[in-house]
Amino acid sequence: MECCNTKQPWYKKISTTLLGTGNCHGEVNQATQGLEKIALVGSPNVGKSVLFNILTGAYVTVSNYPGTTVEVSRGKGKIGTKEYEIIDTPGMYSLLCITEEEKVTRDLLLRESPKAVVHVVDAKNLQRMLPLTLQMIEGDVPVILVLNIMDEAESLGLKIDLKKLEAELGIPVLSTVAALNKGIEVLKERIGEYVYAA
């Protein structure tokens, strides 16, 4: 893992290593200067970090509870023939932020204006998660909607018409089961098309 390779003076690097306060607490920071950005956003515990790990080949900590990711991670990921900076973000329920880690994510969206923003949602809880999609559409954010954990939704008996949802929202919509590596190829394809068209 390439940790802490940010441009810091050597004495700072040594002191952070010695004191154990370097930002190496499970997040990744690869050298990604100059690449176009793709951000993964969404509520806590929907699988953003799993997708990040798949897209970048790095490892950020993944757990089954909300709030595992508290820092932004950046990694390099190849989509089609092009390399992008993939950004994993702390969970965010709404553009109207309450907690500090939500603010981290919104500030990132406002400051860095990514080429594409992948809104990852739990397919079981569309009702609760779509408001953020609507908010981002309102804000002219280049958003792609990913219904993750589709397997659990299906076993609950939920059937979602992706084509129709796509037509309603007017943005790309697709489904994945990130933990089982399903739907990733389609996701990459759609991101590629989307960024190319933009």
Binding site: S94, L126, Q127, L130, P131, L134, Q135, E154, S155, L156, G157, L158, K159, I160, D161, K164, L165, E168, L169
Partner: peptide, 24 residues
Amino acid sequence: SLSRQKKVDTIVEETMTKVQGKEN
């Protein structure tokens, strides 16, 4: 938020159906 949620509810109603699933 309420108006937004209402919109979401109609969208979800139109695009999602629930059949008998095998609950765990």
